[in-house]
């Protein structure tokens, strides 16, 4: 079981990816990203009484607030039935009698779905990047590329969580429930919990630990990665002083994101092989 046949992974991944291209999933998601990003770039500052493109940093800050809701949801929907769907259909038994290991099957499924999600993200936000490019200098383009890259990592981490749920769930209905629950927890509840803890303890106990708790949530890692590494935004939100230096190091944050991609996938494989 230890040897891995990459050809088998590629075959399964290819099928998953082309399925999403053919049923226009990739196109639809890319269009959603493009539309939202354009609206935000031009109207994001409307509250401050200005319409039109302002600066890349403010635009990215607004995009982050959108993407943090949207991408986890899309990734969870994409991945929740990866395994349980095949099991419910009865095709899983058939696949497992072929010369493919359970590990290769999961890795193939994940790779194919990850490719579809990555492709949509690059196409959707890339199109906006192209539209904005005449107004951007090199540094701004670099920041925008960083945002896109972190958005891809965010999607991949939630896709990894989705595949993990898909292995644990006994049927599709339960898997979809778990996916929605996961979204609620990480996107809505988690920050409130931390905020609540801060308020209750009035910051007296372990206040220095709280910023690190954010690493337990890939959505927060994404936010930190984008917001706290931009000088203008840090100043804008007055956050520069309260945040630990280590957490504004993109390499460390990227590493944590990678952990959020590899971890749940490893758990999924472990469970599926049992």
């Amino acid at each position: 079981m230890l040897s891995i046949d990459f050809r088998q992974i590629a075959i399964v991944a290819g099928k998953e990816f082309w399925d999403r291209i053919r049923n226009r999933w990739v196109l639809a998601v890319a269009l959603v990203f493009t539309a939202f990003a354009l609206v935000i770039a031009y109207f994001g500052a409307a509250q401050q009484g200005a319409v039109g493109f302002r600066s890349i940093e403010v635009t990215i800050a607004s995009l982050v607030s959108l993407v943090i809701y949207l991408i986890p949801l899309i990734a969870l929907i994409l991945g929740f039935d990866a395994v349980v769907g095949e099991r419910e259909r009865g095709s899983l038994d058939l696949l497992l009698t072929l010369p493919i290991t359970r590990r290769e099957l999961i890795l193939g499924k994940y790779t194919g779905l990850a490719a579809a999600l990555t492709f949509s993200t690059i196409a959707g936000f890339g199109a906006v990047g192209l539209i904005l490019s005449p107004q951007l200098n090199l540094t701004a383009l670099f920041h925008y590329a960083g945002f896109m890259f972190s958005a891809i990592l965010l999607g991949l981490s939630f896709l990894s969580l989705a595949v993990m749920l898909s292995v644990f769930a006994s049927d599709r209905t339960r898997a979809s429930g778990l996916a929605i629950g996961t979204w609620f927890f990480f996107v809505l509840v988690f920050d409130l919990l931390i905020l609540g803890m801060l308020v209750v303890t009035a910051g007296d106990y372990g206040g220095a630990v709280f910023p690190y708790l954010l690493l337990l949530n890939p959505a927060d890692v994404f936010r930190v990665l984008n917001v706290f590494t931009l000088d203008e935004v840090r100043t804008l939100y007055g956050l520069a002083t309260v945040f630990p230096e280590a957490l504004s190091n993109p390499a460390i944050l990227g590493g944590v994101m990678l952990g959020w991609i590899v971890g749940p996938l490893a758990v999924a494989i472990w469970r599926f092989e049992r």
Binding site: D19, R22, N23, R89, G90, S91, D93, L94, T97
Partner: peptide, 11 residues
């Protein structure tokens, strides 16, 4: 192997 009530890929 031919499973009972085989369900393949609709698309």
């Amino acid at each position: 192997y031919l499973p009972e009530n085989v369900v393949l890929y609709d698309n």
